[in-house]
Amino acid sequence: MYAPQEDTALLSAALADEPLAPGVAVLDVGTGSGALALAAARRGARVTAVDVSRRAVCAARLNALRAGLPVRVLRGNLFEPVRGRSFDLVLANPPYVPAPGAHRPPRGAARAWDAGGDGRLVLDRICHEAPGMLRPGGVLLLVQSALSDPGRTVDCLRSAGLKAAVTQRRRIAFGPVLRTRVEWLRERGLLSPDESEEELVVIRAERPV
Rank of each mutant, 00 (worst) to 15 (best):
127 C>A: 13
133 M>I: 00
121 L>R: 15
130 A>E: 13
146 A>N: 03
141 L>G: 02
131 P>Y: 00
117 G>N: 11
151 G>V: 03
131 P>A: 02
165 A>Y: 06
130 A>H: 04
145 S>K: 00
133 M>V: 01
116 G>S: 09
132 G>D: 15
155 D>T: 15
141 L>N: 00
116 G>C: 08
146 A>V: 14
130 A>R: 08
144 Q>L: 15
157 L>I: 13
163 K>A: 13
123 L>C: 10
152 R>E: 11
167 T>V: 15
134 L>S: 03
127 C>P: 11
139 V>R: 15
145 S>R: 03
155 D>E: 14
136 P>E: 06
123 L>T: 07
150 P>T: 05
136 P>V: 09
149 D>P: 00
138 G>F: 04
128 H>Q: 13
167 T>F: 14
151 G>I: 02
139 V>D: 05
166 V>K: 07
159 S>R: 13
121 L>D: 14
130 A>K: 07
163 K>C: 10
136 P>L: 02
139 V>M: 08
136 P>A: 05
126 I>W: 02
132 G>S: 14
149 D>G: 02
143 V>G: 05
162 L>T: 06
132 G>F: 03
135 R>S: 11
118 D>A: 12
138 G>L: 04
116 G>V: 08
155 D>H: 09
138 G>T: 05
121 L>F: 04
118 D>S: 10
155 D>S: 15
115 A>H: 10
160 A>V: 03
156 C>P: 01
149 D>Q: 01
146 A>F: 05
127 C>G: 10
133 M>N: 01
120 R>E: 15
140 L>P: 09
150 P>Y: 00
123 L>V: 08
143 V>S: 07
131 P>L: 01
166 V>M: 05
118 D>V: 03
128 H>F: 08
163 K>L: 11
142 L>F: 10
142 L>Y: 06
154 V>R: 07
131 P>F: 01
160 A>W: 12
139 V>E: 03
121 L>P: 01
164 A>V: 11
123 L>E: 09
126 I>G: 01
132 G>L: 02
126 I>C: 02
116 G>A: 12
157 L>G: 09
118 D>C: 09
158 R>M: 10
148 S>T: 04
125 R>L: 13
146 A>M: 06
165 A>G: 12
134 L>P: 01
157 L>K: 06
156 C>Y: 00
149 D>S: 11
127 C>H: 04
119 G>S: 07
157 L>T: 07
152 R>A: 14
159 S>D: 15
152 R>S: 12
133 M>R: 12
137 G>I: 12
148 S>E: 03
165 A>E: 15
160 A>C: 10
145 S>L: 04
132 G>E: 10
124 D>H: 03
166 V>E: 12
135 R>C: 06
139 V>Q: 08
130 A>V: 11
147 L>A: 08
119 G>E: 11
114 D>V: 00
167 T>I: 15
146 A>G: 13
136 P>G: 12
148 S>H: 05
116 G>I: 10
141 L>K: 00
154 V>C: 14
114 D>N: 07
123 L>N: 05
117 G>M: 13
126 I>P: 01
166 V>R: 08
153 T>N: 05
163 K>F: 05
155 D>I: 00
115 A>Y: 08
158 R>G: 06
131 P>I: 01
